[in-house]
């Protein structure tokens, strides 16, 4: 994927660019808003990682608003030290697709950026999801694995749906909290792990190969082969 990173702090930008490249992405980097806007408007990117406070007279919000007013719908992830709820709301209202605050874990950033790019493509009016021998019918809300019916609670169904929509990608605990429960805080207790483990009991345990994998220091991933 082609990703544009607009970030003025040299060290942070260095780490983000290096990490994204190691994950196999093509990365462009600029350190000010004006160049960022020029690049974002003139070239095609799959995602933009955007700092809010930028030198050069064009800050992150202005950049994004200008971009959106030109009809450019490239997914944008804000990466900012402005961490208040109001800041987040402002960022999302301006057209941001996600908002992360500094300091951040790179694994979280990577997972979220990859989820962003996926969101744009596959969230069509799909009625069926399938990963390996696992099938989900979104209309009848039923799940089958290897032709065998799997009974799930409503919340377990939504958890599995989220994992399947992001199949092959790392999904962090925070992403699950936000995407499945719509919670915007981190509980002290390992509630997510417990729910994933329950889902595994139903989806993986009766079968020969596991589909839900734990990714160390990051989260979970649903895919056929182990990561």
């Amino acid at each position: 994927m082609r990703i544009l990173v607009v970030e003025d702090d040299k060290d942070v930008a260095g780490f983000v660019v290096k990490g994204l490249r190691e994950a196999g992405h093509v990365v462009e980097h600029t350190a000010n808003g004006r160049d960022g806007l020029f690049l974002a408007a003139s070239e095609q990117f799959d995602a933009i990682v955007l700092d809010r406070m930028l030198p050069g007279g064009v800050d992150g919000l202005r950049l994004l608003e200008t971009l959106r007013s030109q009809g450019n719908a490239t997914p944008v992830m804000f990466l900012s030290a402005l961490a208040q709820v109001d800041d987040r709301v402002r960022g999302l209202k301006a057209g941001g697709d996600d908002y992360m605050t500094k300091p951040f874990a790179f694994a979280e950033l990577l997972a979220r950026v990859e989820a962003l790019t996926r969101r744009g493509k596959s969230e069509g009016p799909a009625t069926k999801l399938a990963v390996g021998d696992l099938e989900m019918d979104l209309l009848s809300r039923s799940v089958k694995r290897a032709g065998q019916k799997v009974d799930l609670q409503p919340r377990e169904f939504r958890l599995l749906e989220y994992l399947m929509r992001h199949a092959g990608q790392v999904v962090t605990r925070t992403m699950l909290l936000e995407g499945v429960w719509d919670y915007h805080f981190d509980p002290q207790t390992n509630v997510i792990d417990v729910h994933v483990s329950r889902l595994r009991q139903k989806v993986d345990k009766p079968f020969a190969t596991p589909l839900i994998h734990t990714v160390r220091n990051a989260g979970y991933m649903l895919r056929v082969e182990a990561p």
């Binding site: 709301v89 919670y183 207790t189 417990v194």
Partner: peptide, 24 residues
């Protein structure tokens, strides 16, 4: 940003989220 909030479903969701962890 305050609005009318029905805390009943909010609490049920939280109960559901924590029930599993408690059982564990």
């Amino acid at each position: 940003a305050f609005t009318q909030v029905d805390v009943a479903p909010l609490l049920s969701d939280l109960a559901e989220l924590y029930e599993a962890a408690a059982e564990e």
